[in-house]
């Protein structure tokens, strides 16, 4: 298995189906701690479905059926004894389209800690999170403005700050830059390098340059299956499977 670090997330023969459509099949994947893992592959290959399996967000889709195992720190998260609310506290998620709450910037970040009974100063917590998300300098003087009044890139960093404020262990990101311009994208990519000091990041992207730039490991998926998984450098320079090579060199996708 790739990675010097300890695996924090692991899947064993994971299958996810929407009704009769088997969107994700036989996935065995082990994600090392405090690193960035990219999931790449053509549209509809099951990247988002796999990502949502890590914090059980697939549960909100009525037709979904999950079999196999996902382990977070050795614990199978699909066991009935697992409290899904605390699981999601530990495994945060940033979505494809920035989705701040229609509330002030401050409330956007403070809400998570507050409902989870954070005992310290919310003010401080919000400031820290916004700093870690590289947004503080831009919003420090307008924390009481509506989060939706920010630009798309700022909104996405606000969503990252909101997630960071929970101090999760893992941050799942589903194409977080696909709705952003190149400059905002660049800022978020820079931010990812900062974040991986403290967090484990799993990022779905259909942008191969992005995967190559930011990630330590890359998983290539095709039609619901994991085709190849390894250190990013190897996947992009010396892939073992022909399909991977075709995809990363742009022959299809």
């Amino acid at each position: 298995m790739p990675g010097e670090n300890h695996p924090i997330l692991e899947t064993k023969d994971l299958n996810i189906a929407y009704g009769t459509l088997e969107a994700v099949r036989h996935i065995n994947l082990s994600i090392p701690e405090k690193s960035i893992t990219a999931i790449i592959g053509p549209s509809g290959c099951g990247k988002s479905t796999l990502l949502r399996a890590f914090n059980r967000m697939n549960e909100f889709i009525a037709s979904v059926r999950t079999t196999g195992m996902v382990r977070f720190r050795e614990q199978n998260i699909y066991e009935t004894s697992v409290d899904v609310v605390s699981l999601r506290r530990a495994i945060g998620m940033v979505f494809q389209k920035p989705n701040p709450f229609p509330k002030t910037i401050f409330k956007n970040v403070a809400w998570g800690p507050r409902i989870n009974g954070y005992p310290g100063s919310l003010q401080q917590r919000v400031e820290e999170a916004l700093k870690k998300a590289a947004l503080w300098d831009e919003v420090s003087d307008k924390l009481d403005q509506d989060g939706l009044s920010l630009s798309g890139g700022q909104q996405q960093r606000l969503c990252i700050a909101r997630t960071i404020a929970m101090e999760p262990e893992v941050i799942l990101m589903d194409e977080p830059c696909s709705a952003l311009d190149p400059i905002s994208t660049r800022r978020i990519e820079d931010l990812l390098f900062e974040l991986k000091q403290r967090y484990t990041i799993v990022i779905v992207t259909h942008n191969m340059q992005q995967a190559a730039r930011v990630s330590d490991h890359t998983a290539f998926m095709y039609q619901g299956e994991l085709i190849e998984y390894g250190p990013t450098e190897l996947i992009f320079t010396r892939p073992k499977v022909k399909q991977t090579e075709d995809y990363v060199t742009g022959k299809f996708g």
Partner: peptide, 11 residues
């Protein structure tokens, strides 16, 4: 998206 945002924060 609002529901998912809230739920993903562990609410």
């Amino acid at each position: 998206s609002i529901r998912f945002a809230a739920l993903a924060l562990g609410s």
